[in-house]
Design a protein around this nucleic acid. Structure first.
Length: 238
DNA sequence: CGCGTTTGACCTGCGC
DNA sequence: GCGCAGGTCAAACGCG
């Protein structure tokens, strides 16, 4: 896993460097209206779902001027995602690997196309909201605005295994998303031995440190372990 | 029957 | 205070 992570890290880093150099050679700042193509950036989750007619573009508040704006009005973190869809597809569905529940739709003044409001239905406590609206200029482009951050892993599978706690509710539905993150602890014997690459010690330590600091990783680990324990222990409640 | 979507009503913030 | 626009709620509805 470390080897794969290191490889991905190296790829991303080189692509990032490419982007930064090309951006600086173009004059430094990219106009907000010009959205970056996501296929030059390996947004690992988003690229997986971008297939066929779908073309994803990411616009995030991590850019400098959005940072300034965030300072100004202290709103929760949001990001924009433009999706090119089939013109015949009239649904306002953006497949991004998460499970969304629509809770409203509204026609706004600046755009004749209705805006749909979604909540993350993956975890009941997840505060993330999503607004999806067709672009006024190009009806084939869906603009999804994400508000907040997911407090669970990027997976279409429930964060809490079934039966481990009450009130899991609808999150026990089947997973259909392409973007599952699975921590597989079920085959200790048949596990492939990954040949340890020549990783810099400091990098490995840094990766381990960030993993242990990441609450999402801890939660996923706890979930996997508790699930495994429940699976191995004699069935008490069917 | 359960769950997700639809849609009109309601709430809230903002400008005048 | 009023009106408008965006955002949210919740009952009704449809589908599997």
């Amino acid at each position: 896993m470390l080897a794969v992570m290191y490889e991905n890290y190296a790829n991303l880093r080189s692509q990032m460097m490419d982007l930064m150099t090309s951006a600086s050679s173009e004059g430094g700042s990219v106009s907000p209206a010009r959205k970056r193509k996501s296929d030059s950036l390996d947004m690992n989750g988003y690229n997986d779902v971008a297939n066929g007619m779908t073309d994803y573009k990411i616009e995030s508040t991590s850019s400098e001027d959005c940072y300034k704006r965030a300072k100004e009005d202290c709103k929760p973190k949001f990001s924009k995602l433009s999706v090119r869809t089939d013109p015949s597809d009239s649904s306002l569905v953006v497949r991004d690997g998460y499970q969304w529940r629509k809770y409203g739709q509204k026609v706004t003044r600046d755009n004749p196309c209705p805006r749909a409001y979604f909540r993350c239905s993956f975890a009941p406590t997840c505060p993330v909201k999503k607004k999806v609206q067709r672009s006024a200029e190009d009806r084939t482009i869906l603009v999804a605005t994400y508000e907040g951050e997911h407090n669970h892993g990027n997976s279409s599978q429930p964060a809490v295994p079934n039966g481990s706690s009450s009130g899991a509710g609808s999150i026990s539905r089947h997973s259909s998303g392409p973007n599952n993150v699975t921590l597989d602890l079920t085959h200790p014997g048949s596990r492939q031995e990954v040949e340890s690459p020549q990783l810099p010690r400091s990098l490995v330590e840094q990766m381990a440190l960030s993993l242990t600091k990441d609450p999402g990783f801890k939660a996923a680990l706890a979930t996997a372990i508790s699930g495994k324990v429940l699976q191995l222990s004699p069935a008490r409640n069917n």
